[in-house]
Design a protein around this nucleic acid. Structure first.
Lengths: 229, 229
DNA sequence: CGTCTCTTTGAAACGCGTCAATGGCTGTGG
DNA sequence: CCACAGCCATTGACGCGTTTCAAAGAGACG
């Protein structure tokens, strides 16, 4: 029903000539993912680089104790494993599909050769990592300085920003459980459930089994900006 | 008194020929820093790339509210702003000297030109970012899943690993205040002080005004690995 | 229609932040 | 040389936010 928004040209292709774009895309291997499919596993050899075309993946770390930390949610136009060209590199996080997805993949050898031949591609991949780094640093800052309500409000706003507008609200583009929101904010599904119930009462959002719609972004931002005092 | 350890060749130069190393190092501008000097400011244009020769810097973010988050401590052989070659990029974190330090710097234009000319250099810079990313992701995981004692113990072990061995202990290579340890662990100087007093009583470490020595690394690792249960 | 996963709600315990006051070390200037 | 100021560290008491545990409800799916 809702249109997927017109897919802008991926940042990865920025500044590449038509010919260069063909050279890059020709050897790409498309791959389809079902929910919970694992594209790359944390700690495993990073032997492929991926560009998401359709759908959303979560980037997560599983600690020795088995607890899961959700680092980011990525979608169309985003890359995974921009470090793949580095010989011997390993995935720093796992990538797991949240919904049916389609990605383009390049084996390490291939993307490394392309990156050496196309300087602009290497720069773009650097820019992608830089972007990811910014996001991760924002998460660090949040975790270190903010309380759970602020962290959760920000996480929801971040997710909603990549979603689509429905009647009077921003709907998050992919299914997301309380547990995942907890993993994303370093909290527990109980606390998340309580907060969201409260906010739903306040008319800030509406949630129905996996689908969350932010009704009042300004109101949520007010919560997100509240002093920890 | 204690020897600075023999400086290994920086990772940045790995795989570069003698001639390439000269090309890279010739246009470098050395710069001396005093404690609290700011090498780069978060959010400011990233117009220089730096390689640390001597001393340690802290990488930190200052939030709108003024609270400081310490992302990492870097030392000799480490890089700052490996993203500088990207046009228009900004420093994602501030870099502030913890002690007298000496760094080599390259203006953005210069390092960008060099990176385009020396593919191996670009790869090395990518590897540096990748390394930083690993560290930051470990911090995220810690903040999201561990309690303060574990986080602090890990932070101390991390710092001590880059320090030097003294009689029966690992001394952290640079001055560090309780406040900085708190900023590093998303805690408060009070909690840090209490924990360290307790650990000093247990014989795990010794601390004297800014200088911290880990006496029993295995013991500290035991604390770091304790179940959050 | 039953099972499984996700969610809600309550009550209790506790970790840790907050505030306030004190103490020690360092460097500086009278 | 001593005294003062400034910074950093210590310690206790208190309160609150969150986790923890337990139990029950609600959709989804075969």
């Amino acid at each position: 029903m809702t249109m997927t928004r017109a897919s802008a040209p991926p940042r990865l292709l920025a500044g590449l000539s038509e010919g260069e774009q063909r050279d890059l895309l020709a050897p790409a291997l498309p791959r389809l993912l079902k929910p919970h499919d694992v594209l790359g596993h944390q700690g495993g050899p990073a032997d492929l680089f991926a560009l998401i075309q359709i759908g959303h993946l979560k980037l997560c770390r599983t600690s020795a104790a088995g607890t899961e930390t959700l680092v980011a949610v990525i979608g169309p136009g985003d890359c995974y494993a921009a470090i793949a060209p580095i010989p011997g590199s390993r995935y720093p996080v796992s990538a797991i599909a949240l919904e049916p997805a389609r990605v383009l993949t390049w084996p390490r050898q291939t993307i490394a050769a392309l990156a050496d031949r196309l300087p602009r591609l290497k720069t773009n991949m650097l820019a992608e990592i830089s972007l990811r780094m910014s996001g991760v640093l924002a998460v660090v800052e949040d975790l270190a300085t903010e309380r759970v309500p602020q962290r959760l409000a920000r996480a929801l706003l971040r997710l909603a920003a990549h979603g689509y507008a429905t009647r009077g609200g921003l709907e998050i583009a992919h299914p997301v459980t309380r547990q995942e929101l907890a993993d994303l904010t370093g909290s527990t599904l109980f606390t998340v459930s309580r907060l969201m119930a409260q906010w739903e009462g306040d008319g800030l959002l509406r949630s129905a089994r996996g689908a969350v719609t932010v009704l009042d972004p300004e109101g949520l931002e007010l919560v997100a900006a509240a002093e920890p005092d």
